[in-house]
């Protein structure tokens, strides 16, 4: 089995989950209504838990322990897509990101349930059951707010327009697409993107929202190769503030 390709795949999944979970946790205590505060926070916990599961697999493949890997790398060593590192913005942006990202995540996990690398397929099977609820949550809110008031529709549309180029960056191909597909580890980003477009279009059709023309949209890529926006390094500095204050300590 091609370990370099495998690790590349695992890093991007783990990093995506860690950073989106970190971002969504910023809503804890300040959500638009209590119930939504609780829901966002719960999903953020799930994402951090998912990243932990993948960092553990990486550890078994010889990488450092999950805390070291997650908390002590610099931005250019992260493989997450740029989409997940963007600030939470207003609730409309966070909701749209949750909707677009989580659909991709659901399909990715579905694909990975058939992975020839068993540790991944086992995790994917388990996590798919959690992400199912994240998708239900996202769909309910997109349908609700995407048909409710002029303000809610305008806000969601504006956020959707801003988010789409970054969302397309989720599917930035790695150097190892062919190896991963040949070894039946992961079928590839192109196949994932096609299914994603179908799924999100199905939901958006039930709202007043318009999906921008994807053929005219340039994807914001680079994240998978360590090129990030100005927002990632400050996020990582904050995340590691305590752990770096005494690196010899156990916390």
């Amino acid at each position: 089995m091609n370990n370099i390709a495998l690790k590349d795949l695992l890093y991007k999944i783990a990093d995506d989950q860690l950073i989106i979970g970190h971002r969504n946790s910023e809503w804890t205590g300040i959500g638009p209504i209590l119930e939504e505060d609780i829901a966002f926070s719960s999903m953020a916990q799930d994402k951090i838990g998912h990243s932990y599961a993948f960092f553990n697999v990486l550890h078994e493949l010889g990488e450092s322990d999950p805390d070291t890997t997650a908390f002590l790398r610099n931005a250019e060593q992260f493989h997450n897509c740029q989409f997940v590192e963007l600030p939470i913005g207003e609730y409309d942006f966070s909701l749209v990101r949750h909707f677009l990202f989580d659909h991709s995540e659901m399909i990715r996990f579905e694909m990975l349930t058939n992975s020839s690398f068993e540790p991944i397929s086992l995790i994917a099977r388990k996590l798919k059951g959690e992400v199912k609820y994240h998708i239900m949550h996202a769909n309910v809110w997109i349908k609700k707010l995407g048909t409710a008031t002029n303000e809610s529709i305008e806000r969601l549309q504006k956020s959707l327009d801003e988010a789409i180029p970054f969302a397309l960056g989720i599917f930035e191909e790695s150097k190892y697409e062919e190896e991963l597909a040949n070894e039946k580890i992961f079928p590839g980003e192109i196949a994932l993107k096609e299914r994603w477009i179908e799924q999100i279009s199905d939901v958006l059709k039930q709202t007043e929202l318009q999906l921008p023309d994807l053929s005219l949209t340039e994807a914001r890529t680079g994240g998978r190769y360590g090129r990030h926006t100005e927002y990632l390094q400050p996020l990582l500095d904050e995340m590691s503030e305590v752990i770096k204050s005494d690196p010899t300590a156990e916390w």
Binding site: T147, S152, Q206
Partner: peptide, 28 residues
């Protein structure tokens, strides 16, 4: 102040939840 800002930022969401023209009202 944090609580006040959170309430103000979430106001449009709560208004939208109450909007009668919303097509989607089926509970989860």
């Amino acid at each position: 102040a944090v609580r006040r800002v959170a309430e103000e930022r979430g106001e449009w969401v709560r208004q939208a939840m109450l909007a009668p023209q919303s097509k989607y009202v089926v509970p989860l």
